[in-house]
Design a protein around this nucleic acid. Structure first.
Length: 255
DNA sequence: ATGGTAGAAACTCTA
């Protein structure tokens, strides 16, 4: 089973790129973030024609998450239970025997801002919820844009980013607490090239200079981590015309 | 010293 995540930064704009990428990579499950679409505008038909069922939770202008899957997603749930949030950032569904959680963690804007506090509260609520989900669903995968670079190796210039949003101590600690539940960062289960990133700012020719961060992750429960045979970042879509600022990440699970 | 770019929407906010 091939599991993927991609922050598309507007599904409306990125639909042609997504369709081309689906045809090339043939993933079984794809978690999308920043769809920026109300549910009525979700391109259900185009997805069906590409061979994918979909569940989605969107809103106008900002946020919005979706799960595409080759087979019909079951037991779909939206949001973090008990955590009041107007922003559409979480959708979960069962696909075959795997419980899939798609997350779009708040960006946080800048350290000390209201949005940063919201990000840390949000990550705390996510962690508490996932602790219970792990017990309910041993085969659990959490995929998405976490807006946190966990380690120095995940940042093009750790000294420059020290203490900055996406790499600050409290954010990295919050991410560590998530891993402490038992999840594995699938990317780090395997040898990887140096300076492997999933996001590059649109500005200052950051992609061309590979000034990126690895903030999109595929976390696997212990049972799924044992089945994982590979994880990689596909930078090809970031090179193309009118790209998202994020590249997709793909993990492979043995049957 | 607050730029640089992209997206959505509406003359600004978010990332």
């Amino acid at each position: 089973m091939r599991l993927a995540t991609w922050n598309v930064n507007s599904l409306k704009v990125r639909l042609p790129q997504l369709l081309e990428w689906l045809a090339r990579q043939r993933p079984d499950v794809v978690c999308l973030q920043e769809t920026k679409l109300e549910d009525a505008a979700f391109p259900r038909l185009e997805m069906a024609q590409a061979g994918y069922a979909a569940c989605f939770a969107g809103q106008k202008t900002y946020n919005g998450v979706a799960i595409l899957s080759r087979t019909e997603p079951r037991a779909v749930s939206v949001g973090i239970p008990g955590f009041q949030d107007e922003q559409k950032r979480v959708i979960a569904a069962s696909v075959e025997q795997v419980r899939v959680v798609c997350v779009y963690v708040p960006n946080g804007q800048s350290v000390g801002s209201d949005k940063y506090d919201y990000k840390l509260r949000w990550m705390g609520a996510l962690t508490a919820w996932l602790a219970t989900e792990l017990e309910r669903h041993p085969q659990l995968a959490v995929l998405g844009d976490f807006n946190v670079a966990p380690e120095e190796a995940d940042v093009h210039d750790p000294r420059l980013w020290e203490g900055q949003v996406l790499f600050s101590g409290p954010e990295r600690e919050a991410f560590k607490k998530l891993l402490a539940l038992g999840f594995k960062d699938s990317f780090r289960l395997f040898p990887q090239p140096e300076k492997a990133f999933t996001w590059w700012d649109y500005r200052m020719a950051a992609f061309k200079r590979n000034l990126g961060l690895r903030i999109d992750h595929i976390l696997l429960s212990p049972a799924l981590a044992r089945r994982c045979t590979g994880c990689s970042i596909d930078v090809a879509p970031r090179r193309g015309a009118r790209p998202s600022d994020h590249a997709p990440v793909i993990a492979e699970l043995a049957d």
